[in-house]
Design a protein around this nucleic acid. Structure first.
Lengths: 210, 210
DNA sequence: AAAGAATGTGAAGGATTGCTCATATTCGCA
DNA sequence: TGCGAATATGAGCAATCCTTCACATTCTTT
């Protein structure tokens, strides 16, 4: 099973490589995963099939590149928002994070959904987990300024709430405008407030125990 | 393109038909959609490929039957919960609905996710929309007892919040126990409370305008 | 300009898939 | 028991699909 050949796949023209990835992305969002064939990708990218296989070892690798790109994009936006709002009011910081997530989902809704599904079937699980981890961390720092008692669980829940609402909106064909942001903000604020009072109760109850 | 033959597909043995659907479901949850081949389904169901095509006109029809089954199951549980709790305290009613949704997602998590994805690629959109509509309606009646000002938008948001949190939990491999239910309840309660105070504000502002 | 390296090409191999149809088997009934 | 209808079977067809490889083209260097 050793495989000594094939070292290139690295240098080559970066433009062509990106063209292939972008072609794959467009096919993914117009025809779904079952329409994503190597021939279709090559044709759409304006490249021959042979060339495609000089840039990528196989079809999965092309798909993986698409996912990696999408993930990096979201990661970049989230980091930007976090950095930019490190000293802004907490509500504004939360909104900036939300807007990053919304942009990710609404710029190319179909692609975002296909990517999310495909990620579970590829071996990118570790990278996906790492992104989730970082997002939870960023969110945690922000919500701590709104609800100091919040922990990792609350951060994961806030991410899940936002993702769920944004996803549903995208599926329903809604437009991702300020109205949606406002609703998600309300949901998160409500959850944090409720959680705070709940943990206060718990603390009160357990400290009242003998 | 006329196709006069093939009227059966109806009577036949119901047990065999269900065996085929169940086989498809199991393949879907172990190998995903790309592992769902007609040969695999037939083999797993203990039937020949020829027989499969006497029960279903094509592969899509088998998949559609799986989805229809899953959907009917959820629908049944939701209706049951709603009926059973029509005169129970609102909080208990909401919890019953949540438990129905959780059961749907956690009994066979992988299958639930594959089904949700597949539905968007089949022409079942109308049926899916009808289910969403009914779920929103059931939820609306329940949350109205907690927050009388709630409307269809709030019902959809509550569904989205619950779905998002339950989905995330299932993906993370969490177990869908009482702790998860409690967290989702908090999120929904918080959202409704926040929304109520928000609409009160809006009403106050707009009635204060000349 | 010439040669060698790098890159691009697409016909074709090998594998798989959805599905059909001629045949075999079983079932229901007299 | 015997016969016709209902049902089951699986080899095989046509259509794809992914991938390779012998060859054509372009680029680089001298």
């Amino acid at each position: 099973m050793h495989n000594p050949r094939k070292q290139p796949l690295q240098a080559r023209s970066r433009a062509t490589q990106e063209a292939i990835v972008e072609a794959a992305a467009r096919i993914l969002e117009t025809a779904g995963r079952e329409g994503l064939t190597t021939n279709a990708i090559a044709e759409r990218a304006g490249v021959s099939i042979g060339s495609l296989y000089q840039y990528f070892p196989n079809k999965e690798a092309v798909l993986a590149a698409v996912l990696r790109g999408k993930r990096a994009e979201l990661q970049g936006w989230m980091r930007d928002a976090a950095e930019r709002c490190r000293e802004a009011p907490p509500a504004a910081a939360l909104r900036a994070l939300l807007e990053a997530g919304m942009r990710h989902q609404f710029e190319r809704p179909r692609l975002a959904m296909e990517a999310e599904y495909a990620e579970q079937h590829l071996q990118l699980a570790p990278e996906t987990a790492a992104l989730a981890q970082e997002m939870a961390q960023i969110v945690l720092e922000t919500i701590r300024r709104l609800a100091p008692a919040a922990g990792p669980q609350e951060a994961r829940d806030v991410v899940a709430i936002a993702k769920g609402m944004i996803n549903a909106a995208a599926l329903n064909g809604e437009e991702g405008g300020a109205a949606l942001v406002a609703r998600v903000e309300r949901a998160i604020r409500g959850y944090l407030r409720e959680t705070a009072s709940n943990s206060a109760e718990i603390r009160a109850v357990s400290s009242a125990a003998p």
